[in-house]
Design a protein around this nucleic acid. Structure first.
Length: 588
DNA sequence: ATAGGGTTAG
């Protein structure tokens, strides 16, 4: 039998790339063997890839085994790696089992490959079994294998095993440290990630730095993030795209939008991730109009929006009620056939709900194949906001029946639903059930909802009792709710107590300042207001000018306090009202 | 072998 000539091999290679039926595969298969082409390594590798795309693990394994006298792990490794990338990653583990039981001894490359497949199908038990084989065959001292085991245990949701692996190592390199740090970051253990970074006894690389930047952003550790930034500048590190984006997003997550904007300007390379970070930052910092402007700039640079940035932009539309813009994005998603995942679905439900299109919000919600707690919260919160308290409660109960655990945001949604619809008894019951049935500790926001609920229902004394007995100190929001409760009830005693408490609290932020100056203003104490203003200046507290945003004919109009913009719109009444409020706050 | 962006409330 002669060796196949290279052109023949190439034909076979090409054939193997075409999706084939089993019958034609059998023909190619026999051609391979009778021609001797199966001796060519390139053909065999292609064959392994092909088998992974069309055959079960055992038939693929035995076909490959047939091609050789002595089992060569290299070929099986290729098969394992192909299965790992396929839609049936667990088949990689099946090949590994065949190798072990059949005597085709795995080599040091086999373990990282098959372990990677465990990450894809969350095969923690399988990872343990591979670990056992690693130990039995004497590969446990291999640094590569150890590093992969840390990674796999960590990502299969078994962080303790990853730590044990790490602790037991005699020599750790930068990959071992970075691996465990990144596992912490992916599992939300941001403080642990920073602690590990502090303990590191090898020089970190840019990959380590990126993980640390994510951790400092998510913990709000601005100082650590800034130090890392300084370190990079000092070393004159050339920021790659990923590191630059990580730095930018750190400032975004630490709510330093001005520094983030500066960073964004300075970055020499920008991709869709860069734009997404700055846009979502603007949304989080309550600057949705600017977020939309940046989004349009992004498009003018020819950057194609993807589902991630669209989800953020939808959130911008939601927060300013920009229905035209939001539904344009909805059409864009359908037109470009952008994949609709649970994030973008939730953003869409939220946008339609906040814009008052509850029917549309419901329709999208019902068509979402996967819903998480945030999806339900968006819908329930939307119903609550539009006075559909009973419906909101109905969906809440349905959600609980489906087995989803409500979180603290869910309770803010239903408590405010009760508040806006006057459902006092239901509100009390749900508030109590937080601790009793749902293992949740009410936060100050929940007490705020209850005070608001009781106050609106005229139950000022009960609200008063709640504020006195709650386990935390009342904040401006609580006092604000109490104040408006008193205003309608005429309980002068409680009202005086609220005022005294507010004065005692002092102007710690601009919210308190507004409340205080309102109190002074109603009592004609203009001198006190001047004093307040001086105090604010001294403390460096700024009151952002109030603003109001509306959308008309696809245009977003912003009204700043005391500023008339787009006055040809004819909504003069609103402008005047805002202007009047400004006069009142200034009090002069 | 280790690295970046999104959604809920107030």
């Amino acid at each position: 039998m002669t060796r196949a000539s290279p052109p023949f091999n190439r034909i076979l290679l090409n054939l193997l790339q075409v999706p084939l039926k089993t019958t034609s595969f059998t023909q190619i298969h026999s051609l391979l063997f009778t021609s001797g082409a199966s001796q060519e390594l390139s053909v065999l590798l292609k064959l392994a890839e092909f088998l992974a795309s069309s055959q079960t693990p055992s038939s693929a394994y035995f076909t490959l085994k047939q091609t050789q006298r002595l089992p060569n792990p290299f070929l099986f490794n290729t098969l394992i790696s192909s299965y790992t990338q396929s839609s049936s990653p667990h088949f990689a583990f099946a090949v590994f089992k065949h190798m072990v039981s059949d005597g085709s001894t795995p080599d040091k490359y086999t373990f990282p490959l098959v372990l990677k497949s465990c990450v894809r199908f969350s095969g923690f038990e399988e990872a343990r079994q591979i670990h056992g084989v690693v130990a039995k065959l004497g590969f446990l001292t291999d640094l590569y294998v150890q590093n992969v085991l840390i990674h796999v245990y960590g990502l299969c949701g078994c962080y303790p095993d990853a730590c044990i692996m790490f602790d037991d190592m005699l020599v750790r390199d930068v990959v071992s440290w970075t691996g465990l740090i990144s596992v912490c970051v992916k599992g939300g253990r941001f403080v642990d990630a920073l602690t590990l970074f502090a303990q590191m006894d090898v020089v970190p690389n840019i990959t380590t730095i990126v993980s640390v930047l994510v951790a400092s952003g998510r913990t709000g550790e601005l100082n650590i993030g800034r130090s890392v930034h300084g370190l990079l500048l000092k070393n004159e590190a050339v920021l790659g795209l990923i590191a630059g984006n990580a730095l930018l997003d750190m400032y975004v997550k630490c709510e330093r939008i001005d520094e983030a904007k500066q960073m964004f300007k300075e970055l020499p390379m920008k991709d869709i991730v860069t734009w997404t970070s700055i846009i979502s930052g603007l949304v989080q910092c309550k600057q949705p109009k600017e977020a939309l402007e940046v989004f349009h700039t992004m498009q003018s640079y020819g950057m194609e929006p993807d589902k991630v940035v669209l989800s953020s932009v939808l959130s911008a539309c939601a927060s300013m009620g920009a229905l035209d813009c939001g539904s344009w994005i909805h059409r864009y998603i359908n037109f470009k056939a952008i994949e609709q995942d649970v994030h973008i679905g939730t953003s869409m439900v939220d946008m339609y709900a906040k814009c008052g299109c509850l029917d549309m919000a419901l329709e999208i919600f019902e068509n979402m194949p996967i819903k998480n707690i945030r999806s339900w919260n968006a819908l329930i919160g939307g119903l609550a906001m539009h006075g559909q308290g009973k419906e909101a409660l109905g969906y809440f109960e349905w959600m609980v029946r489906t087995g989803l655990k409500p979180n603290d945001v869910s309770f803010i949604a239903i408590l405010s639903a009760c508040s806006h619809s006057g459902l006092v008894e239901e509100g009390r019951r749900h508030f109590a059930s937080m601790i009793k049935f749902h293992d949740l500790v009410p936060k100050i926001e929940h007490y705020g909802c209850m005070v608001d609920l009781l106050g609106r229902a005229g139950l000022v004394e009960e609200a008063y009792e709640l504020v006195k007995t709650m386990p935390m100190k009342a904040d401006v929001l609580i006092w604000g709710a109490m104040l408006s409760a008193c205003r309608t009830s005429g309980k002068t005693e409680i009202s005086q107590w609220v005022r005294d408490s507010l004065l005692e609290l002092g102007p710690s932020d601009s919210g308190a300042f507004v409340l205080l100056s309102n109190i002074y203003a109603t009592n004609d104490r203009w001198g006190d207001i001047s004093r307040l203003r001086r105090l604010m200046r001294k403390k460096g507290i700024k009151k952002e000018p109030g603003s109001s945003i509306i959308e008309l004919d696809g245009w977003v109009h912003e009204f700043l306090v005391g500023v008339m913009e787009h006055h040809q719109m004819g909504d003069i009444l609103m402008v005047l009202y805002i202007f009047e409020k400004q006069m009142q706050i200034d009090g002069q």
